[in-house]
Design a protein around this nucleic acid. Sequence first.
DNA 1: TCTGGGGTCCTAGGACCC
DNA 2: TCTGGGGTCCTAGGACCC
Length: 442
Amino acid sequence: MRREASIMHLDLDAAFASIEQRDKPSLRGRPVVVGGIAGRGVVATASYEARTYGVRSAMPMAEARRRLPAGAAYLVPRFEAYKRTSHVVMDLLREVSPLVEPVSIDEAFVDLAAGGHDCAVPAVTELARGIKARIAAATGGVTGSVGIGSSKLVAKIASDLDKPDGLTVVGPGRELDTLHPLPVTKLWGVGPATAERLRQAGIRTIGDLAARELVDLLAWFGQAHGTGLHRLARADDDRPVVPERDTKSVSAEETFSTDVADRTVLGRELDQLADRVATRLRAAGLSGRTVTVKARYFDFTTITRSATREQPTDEPRTITEAARRLLADIDVTNGLRLLGVGVSALSEFAQDGLFPVIGTAEPDPPPPSRPAPEQPPPPPPGTDWRTGQDIRHDDHGPGWVWGAGLGRVTVRFEGPLTPPGPVRTFKADDPALHRADPPNWI
DNA sequence: TCTGGGGTCCTAGGACCC
DNA sequence: TCTGGGGTCCTAGGACCC
């Protein structure tokens, strides 16, 4: 815990749903649910209109449909669109401080002290107001809620106190007053299982938890979780803001619409999952030694089987063969609800001798040439966005450069599909400047 | 109401080595 | 011949997060 409120947490409000409402004006003001549309799907994000009907994240989609009136929209996620908005926001935050830790596509911590800001409460409050306004402008109206405090814990809890479009600053010395009345479930790391054990011990609020001895928590929850809870309940949190983390595993899984017992079908699924994992490993320049197969039964019990190789691999064939051997040891007579493949024990480069040793590689050949688009070259970094140039776009109609920097171009589109025009960010040389998102209407 | 998909971290037991 | 303790790696499962 720091002496100043210098850690900020930003959480975009119902990000997936509000991006959909931004891009599709007909959805504005209506309940919008983004998530798995099929039988076994769940809600990823519900718009605030949908939340008034009690629809929440992680709720089965079937239940959401039951609760919502006619006229509600059910959409499959368009992750590429969300990532573009996420990049716009993260780039903005990096202008505030070099220490930005994206937690997910719609959430980040920012170390304001590392950005050289005055971290007195009035100053950070003003700073946050400005950041919120810039985010809303740059994203075409997607809002975020901000919390600022002396630790990650306090900042995160603060951002949740006033949603949507909120701003809460917890001044130094106010941490315990803020935390202690809240239910323990607000603490990072307290899920359903921990909450139930705490409830049995008569612990409902974070204040109740702070009143308990460490030995009790150690006995109930073990070393790591016990000490973690003990400290967090006292607002004792010195975790730094870490901009980048190494990837530890890459996996793909699929829940079937009905359980599958046919080993031929499962084998084909396994091949596809292994392919997806291998593709993503290669894109990230990673390979791994441990292959894991995950299976879930009708009753939701889940098992894993893993095998560790001598050498790391990113070869689809190698991963598939290892996965098939593991699947052979799994009982599928009553069918599987879910099948998954993962690779872990990662290292940075493939060791299979399929690639030149680092350092002796030929330079990459130039990318295949594309038909030259009718497009002026993107402005150099630093160009004033107000003077932006026109950029033609196949599907969204004309757009103009809204901002540029760090090899990225932000474009605001105006067209029949999206008046008054969303803002999107592209890499300066991104051919997606001429590609539309696939439609996701259901 | 019947539970997605992508991750992270922790625990516990067994094998193996010194 | 019997027995120790520590360290590391691997496997499996579980809780949790967004």
